[in-house]
């Protein structure tokens, strides 16, 4: 018995496959979803999604979004999502540095630019942390 997982981010389909268990970062806490879960609709916060199938575990970073659970399917609509193994470390690192530098210049705390930058920084940090923790071929 498995459950189908579909992860889609705003700009592309990210993953689709079967799983024995899916762990998602719900707004109110982490949720482990097993096959035949009762229907559920929840928002997600920043974090990682883990998709386990047999002995294999895939890890995805997710920057918030919505998750819908049906007994045979988990649909994840992410604002942004990436497989940890596909993250470009150099790019994420550069993005973090750039965001930090810009933030250090001292923008007004409530401006749109400030909030966008902070979100970008958060995303970069999440990517880098996840790579460090979960990537099989650690560098």
């Amino acid at each position: 018995m498995t459950i189908r997982v579909v992860i889609t981010s705003q700009d592309r389909p990210v993953y689709s496959g079967d799983a024995d268990i899916v762990v998602v970062p719900g707004t109110l806490g982490e949720m482990g979803i097993l096959p035949n879960h009762s229907p559920l609709l929840s928002t997600m916060k920043f974090g990682v999604i883990k998709v386990r199938h047999k002995d294999e575990e895939l890890v995805f970073t997710v920057a918030g979004g919505v998750v819908e659970v049906q007994p045979d399917q988990v649909t994840i609509l992410a604002d942004a999502a990436e497989n940890v193994d596909e993250i470009d470390i150099a790019r994420a690192d550069a993005a973090r540095k750039r965001a930090e530098e810009l933030l250090a210049k001292g923008l007004p705390q409530d401006s749109d630019a400030y909030l966008t930058l902070q979100a970008a920084l958060q995303r970069s940090n999440l990517r880098l942390d996840s790579v460090r923790r979960y990537r099989k071929s650690r560098i």
């Binding site: 719900g26 707004t27 109110l28 949720m31 009762s38 229907p39 559920l40 609709l41 929840s42 928002t43 919505v66 049906q70």
Partner: peptide, 20 residues
Amino acid sequence: SRIHAAFTYEPEMEELLGYV
């Protein structure tokens, strides 16, 4: 194809739908 049981909402329905 499927018969749908009622959703469980997390957080509260009002808040969640107001977002989604």
